[in-house]
Nucleic acid binder design. Structure first.
Lengths: 238, 238
DNA sequence: TCAAAAGTGTTCGATATACACCCATGC
DNA sequence: GCATGGGTGTATATCGAACACTTTTGA
């Protein structure tokens, strides 16, 4: 009986959201195996180190992936099905990428948010990274498709609890239209634009700038910015 | 570098909430060490087995603890600080209770809900279990105090997402007053009773019964029940 | 008749929803 | 001048918050 307690490896996997051209995208990486044909993409992740907390491991993965030191991230669930790493291809890849005989692998999944205009400098480790629209995801190894699926409901509840995080997905300067499209993408439904303007006007921490779009073939939109200090002051006052 | 990937043990720990006499309580168990004086209580938990998912492990722990097969439960966070099991007493206890040389222990924390009037039949394993009011918790081993603290905010967001789960903390038949006190305990603030009556009246899935309290030295309160079917129908229709 | 808890309505402000037209700009 | 997207206001319904007195029952 006591022998049945499992000695296991633990990994973190990150669902990195980005927003571009009205679409939510997820950042995927290519596995190291040379599989002809199929692209073989997966969520970025890593086994955790000896003296490393899972949160630290997630930050490390994201840094190696993007060159960004402190991304906004949130742990959302541990995936631990005994069968999640039973596919022969996946086992072979674990052998190669980490060490042989990884008999069981449990993963802790994270959500992370990334501004589109952030230049990504991925450190050596990842040969190829790719933004992939959430509604056109490929078949992925392990339970990564399941993880992404759950992350989509998780990101909504995250925003309910902390409305400020949506601005992590937009450039410093953004238009109402961009924000509007982002909300529509996250909630996957249409939102009346007039009511949306009112809603934004009521957010004291979203400030209009003097600057407007240039060289657009229609009326130029005003830029806005998110004022973190105003937001925090408001939040602590409640 | 590759040697640095950790081979670790994984446990589950359960924060079991109960509600009695206007108070939220948590079910704790006594550790097996004979420490004089101090009671040495901890959260119920266990290492996970070889072929066991963490959700299954949590269900097993709860069954062994209460005799209840399917408790309402929810995974809420993985605690994995490298130092969380570094206390000498805790390490000694791990040696005894499980096996020697558990160098690192990661835990996945669960919330569970238990009706007060449920008779608890704890299976052999636990010598002594104790309901403990959330505002009078003892010092506990590992990071169990931290886990409980986070569970208190977690239970609120759980209820926001799924209002039906509060009824898991009440008897089949309950009075508005009981429900009212439960909400006050969970949100830790006073709630106007007239508005509360209105709110309950608007819940189409909370049905008044003919039955009333007996032998009370004041006006007898009406009993209500939660209608799961009506709730699910309502939920799917939205 | 008193103590103790049950039960009951109205008003107000804030918030969400529905809905359609004019404005600025580049081509 | 036209195509494209930007920007605006009003009316209505819904929801939450504040607030005090009467009813029932046993002791």
């Amino acid at each position: 009986m006591k022998a049945n307690f499992i000695h296991t490896y633990v990994s973190v996997d990150c669902v990195v959201f980005g927003f571009d051209e009205g679409q939510l995208n997820i950042l995927l990486v290519q596995r190291n195996v040379d599989k002809k044909g199929a692209k073989d993409l997966k969520l970025p992740g890593s086994l955790i180190y000896n003296e490393e907390d899972v949160d630290d491991a997630a930050n490390r993965v994201l840094f190696e992936l993007t060159g960004i030191k402190r991304m906004t991230l949130k742990q959302f669930r541990c995936f631990a099905s005994p069968n999640r790493a039973n596919d022969p291809d996946d086992m072979k890849w674990l052998d190669m990428a980490y060490k042989p005989n990884i008999n069981r692998l449990i993963t802790v999944a994270y959500l992370a948010l990334c501004k589109v205009d952030r230049k990504l400098n991925n450190v050596s480790k990842y040969k190829l990274t790719e933004w992939c629209p959430v509604n056109k995801l490929p078949q992925m190894p392990f339970d990564h498709n399941q993880i992404v699926k759950e992350s989509l409901t998780e990101i909504r509840t995250w925003i309910e609890l902390n409305p400020a995080i949506v601005f992590e997905l937009l450039p410093q300067k953004f238009t109402i239209s961009q924000l509007h499209k982002l909300y529509e993408a996250i909630y996957n439904k249409q939102i009346d634009i007039r009511n949306f303007h009112k809603k934004v006007a009521a957010m004291s921490y979203v400030l209009p700038l003097e600057e407007k779009q240039k060289d657009v073939s229609h009326r130029a939109a005003r830029y806005f910015k998110f004022d973190k200090k105003a937001y925090n002051k408001l939040k602590t006052s409640i």
